[in-house]
């Protein structure tokens, strides 16, 4: 992502001209007004009590109030499961079209489709899954009429943890495909040939060479998927109507009307979320840097 374009000859290094900074003032002003300032407002608010005094109480309460811990825990579980599931499945898919020996045409079809599916989220995605495995959904009906299995009688429910996870997977594994396909392309043919010349089996090649090389990008991608699910709101809201209290849904309720009866606590909850997102993005970019050592 980062790259250096210009390397100044030492002797000609221009005296840092402050006038040059004027050219980027509009951008920084925009970012300050509509991104930094709103975030700062929430940050300051999370350290403010109802009378406007400084307090750590809101932050502490994040770790003590049961409803909040539950919300975070639910979000973390859903994000972790869909990141792992989407990660593994997405990896296998990316594998199949890169080094897995499938025809080249399938690869570009899959990449295009992944681009579409990873962008197909929110309300339409929820509706699509209602039409598929909702109570009167297509698959539900097929299972009932053809196989005699009523999934709703055997405890399945789309508007639940499992249902939401299945729905999230629809945008999770395509994202994995988009990240992993280039990484798998980076596996050099020579490595495999060298390993085979030295008598390695396919399993040995994968376990001792390919997998260790891919590990940072695999982990990084899974962490990114985690953040991707953690920040999701519209899909969950459209699907469950707010009955599944994940963090984003709780924050949404707090915006509409102070359901926590403490504005500061709402800000703290938002900040907790930003913190988790920041950690996962930092983890992703760190691991991505590590992986660039071998792949590329």
């Amino acid at each position: 992502m980062t790259q250096t374009v210009l390397s100044h000859p030492k002797s000609l290094k221009p005296a840092s001209n402050w006038k040059n900074w004027l050219g980027v003032v509009p951008f920084f002003l925009f970012a300050f007004l509509f991104l930094i300032l709103p975030s700062l407002r929430l940050f300051v608010g999370s350290f403010t009590d109802n009378e406007g005094n400084f307090t750590f109480q809101n932050i502490l309460q994040l770790f003590t109030q049961k409803s909040i811990i539950d919300a975070y825990w639910l979000s973390i579980r859903i994000s972790a499961i869909t990141a792992l599931g989407g990660g593994i499945f997405g990896f296998l898919l990316a594998y199949s079209v890169t080094v897995g020996g499938l025809p080249r045409a399938l690869r570009s079809a899959l990449i295009t489709f992944s681009g579409v599916a990873s962008n197909f989220a929110g309300v339409p995605l929820a509706f699509a899954f209602v039409a598929t495995i909702g109570r009167t959904g297509f698959i539900t009906a097929v299972l009932k009429d053809v196989f005699g299995i009523n999934i709703y009688q055997s405890g399945f429910n789309l508007y639940s943890f499992v249902g939401l996870s299945i729905t999230y997977m629809y945008f999770q594994f395509p994202l994995m495909v988009l990240i992993m396909a280039p990484a798998l392309d980076g596996l050099k043919r020579e490595w495999r040939e060298a390993a085979e010349n030295l008598g390695a089996t396919t399993t040995q090649y994968w376990l001792r060479i390919a997998f260790p090389v891919l590990l940072p990008s695999l982990l990084g991608a899974i962490i990114l998927l985690f953040g991707n699910a953690f920040g999701a709101y519209a899909t969950a809201y459209a699907l469950t109507g707010g009955t599944l209290p994940i963090v984003t849904i709780q924050i949404g309720a707090q915006i509409r009307g102070d359901v926590l009866h403490n504005p500061g606590l709402g800000y703290a909850m938002a900040m907790g979320m930003v913190f988790i997102m920041a950690v996962s993005l930092a983890g992703y970019s760190w691991l991505q840097k590590l992986s660039e050592r071998w792949l590329r």
Binding site: A31, F34, L35, L37, P38, S39, R41, L42, G45, G227, F230, G231, A232, Y233, T248, I251, G252, Q254, I255, G266, A270, M273, V274, M277, A278, L281
Partner: peptide
């Protein structure tokens, strides 16, 4: 940064400001 500040948080801050 928009990856770190999801839409629901962004709108929260925008409304408050």
């Amino acid at each position: 940064l928009p990856f770190v500040v999801p839409a629901i948080i962004l709108v929260f801050g925008l409304i408050r400001i």
